[in-house]
Structure formats: C-alpha cells, structure tokens
C-alpha cells in the first residue's frame, strides 16, 4: 500500500471512530447503518493495462475484475440508466446499511462481488453460473430482466438497488464494491460494502483455487495498484444462465 493510500485509510478510520466509537478491526460500523471494509485503492485497467474509462463502458455489458483478493470475482456494469440512491439494505444477520448509489456522469456504473450469498456460486475461469440479464431479456429467476441472476438456485439481485436480493433463496444482497470515479474518467475500487462471504468462500473451493490460482494461499493474496477488467466472455469459458 502506498503512503498516500495508507494515510487515506487511517484518516477515514479516524473520522469514523470520531463519529462512532464502535470500530472493530478494519470494519467500520457507523450509526447511519454502514457496513464497510476499506482495502487498498486499486485502479481498474483493461487487458492491456490501460485505465478503464467510465464513458467507454458499454451499457448493459458485464465486465469482471478481482477485488480485494486475487480470487474474488466482481462484476462491473454500466446499467445504461440511473440507479437508485440511498438504498437501505439488510444483511443476512439483520444488520442494516445504506448503499449510496452508482458512479459515473449518468450515475449508472455499479460493481458487486460475483459470489452468491446463498451457496457461494461464483464466476470463475472455467464457468459462470452468475450473470447480468439485460433489461430486454428474460430469465427464469425473475419476472423481468435488468437483474443479476444466480443460475444455481435461481436467485436474482437488482443492480439498480445495491444488488438487493429480489427473488430466490439468497438471504442477502451481493456485497457491493465501492467505486471512485475520478475527474479523468478512470475508475478505482476502494472498499467492500455489505456483508461479504469471503471467509466461507475461501474455505469451500480448495481444488478450484489450486487449479486456477496455484493454491488457496495465492488465491487469498490481496490485489495491488491495478486490476485487469475484462468482458465476462473473456474472463470465463462458459456462461450458464436460465
């Protein structure tokens, strides 16, 4: 982590403690309902290492990057329309938090972890049972398109509302990736909002991590500086959706 980023995290932490002393480790819980974990700020870059520009993201096309750890897949989607603001969400164990909204000029760019909180179905290099269904498309998981679905047990999440779980057995929303949209149109991942499932996730797929990352220890390594962000069709060999 660079000194500038370290000071940023410390500064944010100090502010949060001043607002509400209930700070545990790197997780900040404030009285306004935020459940927020800050990680190193990394820039989203394309496959060739050039910064991803918000204005160049195609509408309703799904991109994938890894954050905050090497094996944690995340969706980046330009919804093509303005997302809601200040959405109240609730985690599986009843903790409430606020998703403040999307980024970008049109407030339409969102990012979420691509790990289903139900039974940890996730995007990986071999296949993906999670995907974004465009507004005009149909899905068995929900009455309309414009949702992220998990094709394992047909859960659906609304990306306009902080990936709120809207149908199926998923007990909570997808954890959000907090993005910063800089003046030069570049995008940066800075934190995770909501209850993630990283602990269970890393315990559950030993063979996959060995095959795709060289082992669980390498899979758990934190990303740094920048992360490649590619179309889902480039990231994974097969996308399964119902």
């Amino acid at each position: 982590m660079q000194r500038r980023d370290f000071l940023r995290v410390v500064g944010a932490g100090a502010t949060a403690v001043a607002v509400c002393p209930s700070m545990i480790g790197g997780t900040l819980y404030a009285d306004n309902g935020l459940l927020y974990k800050a990680y190193e700020k990394v820039q989203l870059v394309d496959g060739e290492g050039n910064p991803v520009k918000a204005s160049e993201l195609k509408a309703e096309k799904t991109y994938v990057f890894n954050y905050p750890q090497v094996a944690v897949p995340c969706f980046l989607i330009n919804l093509g329309e303005k997302a809601d603001n200040e959405v109240k969400l609730q985690s599986e164990d009843g903790v409430e938090y606020i998703w403040s909204g999307a980024v970008g000029k049109e407030q339409s760019i969102v990012a979420y972890t691509a790990i289903c909180p139900h039974q940890l179905t996730h995007v990986n290099k071999a296949d993906s049972f999670m995907s974004y269904v465009p507004r005009k498309a149909k899905t068995m998981a929900y009455s309309e398109g414009g949702v992220i679905i998990c094709a394992s047990h047909l859960s659906a999440f609304d990306p306009k509302k902080g990936a709120k779980n809207v149908s199926g057995p998923a007990p909570q929303p997808l954890a959000s990736i907090v993005l910063e949209h800089a003046k030069d149109e570049t995008l940066w991942a800075v934190a995770v909002l909501g209850q993630d499932k990283f602990h269970d996730y890393f315990k559950s797929f030993k063979s996959e991590f060995k095959e795709q990352f060289g082992g669980r220890r390498k899979a758990k390594k934190f990303v740094s500086f920048s992360v490649p962000t590619v179309a889902i069709s480039e990231y994974t060999k097969e996308i399964i959706a119902y």
């Binding site: 394992s152 030993k206 063979s207 399964i240 119902y242």
Partner: peptide, 20 residues
C-alpha cells in the same frame, strides 16, 4: 433436464469434496 450443466458441476464438486 434443462439444468443438466448445474448437475454436471455438482457431480464434479462431489468428487472433489469426497477426495478432499
């Protein structure tokens, strides 16, 4: 029957977990 790919993946995971 349309969920056969999910079934195939389940079988793969069952083999992995039983080996582990």
């Amino acid at each position: 029957a349309y969920a056969y790919k999910f079934g195939e993946k389940s079988l793969r995971r069952i083999m992995e977990y039983s080996n582990e």
